[in-house]
């Protein structure tokens, strides 16, 4: 059955999962957005932990490299970075591969998205985690050192859990940023939520149906996150007195 012209379809039907609805496309976009946000955030977290420890305890060369990385990434707009990495980077990579006699490769947009946003996240998280580590009272680490705890065990068992309590509000902000930054990937044609919304509304001209729907979906991500983060924060601050009492 052919769909009637969009102007004759109700908003609910447009958003629905039926033949004439765009529901599946929107949910697919939402899923992609969440996957990219999760992937980028996790990658950023790994970079952030390594970067923070490197900046604090690394040698002079590592410190300089990390300083260059955080400065550059935080200075350039994410959109520009995405374009650079997607077009320039994959282009350069393929040039190199071809010159070495390999075949051209296609980097999937989802991997690009995760890597680009992960690098951005990594720069910001490095600073947030570094601040969190600096706020750990030195006595907490001295106690571990005095008992002969090896440095890696100390980082894992003492520094990171104590850092978490300090860094969580900042890390939570960055998670919300990560969910929204996924929208930037629309420019490279990746069908995340914003791109799916824009396609749907362009085809149906029902802008006032799809954009508020996308807004609601972003809001749901954000509210769910806030709820979860609250629980994590409560757990990370176990053993600490409430500053309000």
């Amino acid at each position: 059955m052919a769909c009637p012209p969009p102007s004759q379809i109700s908003a609910l039907e447009l958003l629905g999962f039926g033949e004439c609805g765009w529901g599946i496309s929107l949910v697919w976009g939402l899923g992609n957005s969440i996957v990219i946000a999760l992937g980028a955030y996790s990658l950023g977290f790994l970079i952030g932990i390594g970067g923070a420890f490197g900046k604090l305890y690394g040698g002079p060369i590592l410190k300089d490299l990390l300083a260059a990385y955080t400065t550059l990434v935080r200075a350039v707009p994410e959109l520009v970075l995405i374009l650079i990495l997607f077009y320039a980077f994959t282009g350069a990579l393929n040039e190199i591969l071809l010159s070495w006699g390999y075949d051209r490769i296609e980097i999937s947009p989802i991997v690009t998205g995760i890597v680009v946003l992960g690098l951005v996240q990594g720069a910001y998280q490095t600073e947030v985690i570094r601040g969190g580590i600096l706020a750990v009272p030195v006595g907490q680490l001295e106690a571990a050192r005095a008992m002969g705890m090896p440095s890696l065990t100390m980082a894992r068992r003492i520094t990171l859990p104590q850092m978490a309590a300090n860094a969580l509000p900042g890390l939570a902000n960055l998670w919300l940023n990560a969910t929204k930054d996924t929208a930037l990937l629309a420019v490279i044609g990746f069908s995340e939520l914003t791109r799916a919304t824009s396609s749907a509304s362009a085809s149906t001209k029902a802008f006032f149906v799809f954009y508020p729907a996308a807004m609601a979906l972003y809001l749901i991500i954000s509210l769910t996150s806030t709820l979860l983060i609250g629980r994590i924060e409560k757990w990370a601050r176990r053993g600490q007195r409430d500053v309000r009492t």
Partner: peptide
């Protein structure tokens, strides 16, 4: 480093400010 860790394990240190790990019972 390993020798130092081993020797430190044989010394019990008590600090002025206790320095109990706050995130642990």
């Amino acid at each position: 480093r390993r020798q130092l860790e081993r020797l430190r394990q044989s010394l019990g240190m008590v600090f002025q400010n206790f320095n109990l790990w706050t995130h642990k019972t």
